[in-house]
């Protein structure tokens, strides 16, 4: 058996290894280049009080979550109880970014599902969404005391995400500086 005749087999096996590993990956989750960068600034109208605005700077000095949601988004409903639970335990302030939604629908939705948000701001035309690289709802950003994005979760969060990913990071960030 000459070595050169084994080359096709070797190439194929390497390929098969990658393909097998590929089965465990999710091709639709795209990591954000914003992690480690300052959270893009915004000043947006509040959902419940449109004449008032709220921005990233208002959260300086705190570790907080920015949760992108909309009343038309089905999986937002799925993750909502965990947000409510998290807000209930008082562990961390959560700011809602109401994305491309209608004000009345959003207010009604919060009334029905519970309101975990310290404040909710409205991004009617989705511009701030683009600034944050939002491509699907729900998405959740973890932002530290200096206003730097530390983590982005794409898709609905669940108990596992909260306990195994978010809480440890929040604890660490809160201790720091």
């Amino acid at each position: 058996m000459k070595a050169k005749f084994l080359v096709p087999l070797a190439i194929f096996l390497a390929l098969a290894g990658f393909l097998g590993y590929g089965l465990t990956l999710n091709p639709s989750v795209v990591p954000s280049p914003l992690v480690g960068k300052p959270a893009p600034a915004f000043q947006l109208a509040k959902l419940d009080a449109p004449q008032e605005t709220f921005g990233v700077d208002d959260m300086r000095g705190q570790v907080w979550l920015l949760n992108v949601w909309a009343s038309w988004c089905v999986s937002c409903r799925q993750e909502h109880p965990y947000l409510v639970e998290m807000a209930g335990t008082g562990g961390i302030p959560v700011i809602g970014l109401n994305y491309k939604d209608e004000r009345q629908a959003a207010i009604g939705w919060l009334r029905a599902q519970g309101d975990p948000y310290l404040a909710t701001v409205t991004d009617e035309d989705g511009r701030v969404g683009i600034e944050y690289g939002v491509y699907g709802t729900p998405e959740t950003f973890l932002i530290d005391k200096d206003g730097v994005i530390r983590y982005k979760h794409i898709g609905p969060i669940n108990r596992d995400t909260v306990q195994k990913v978010l809480m440890p990071m929040i604890a660490e960030l809160s201790r720091a500086g």
């Binding site: 058996m1 000459k2 005749f5 084994l6 096709p8 087999l9 096996l13 098969a16």
Partner: peptide
């Protein structure tokens, strides 16, 4: 594919 390439490496020479 694996079996056929093994066979290839064995017999093709």
């Amino acid at each position: 594919i694996g079996i056929s390439l093994v066979l290839f490496a064995w017999r093709a020479p």
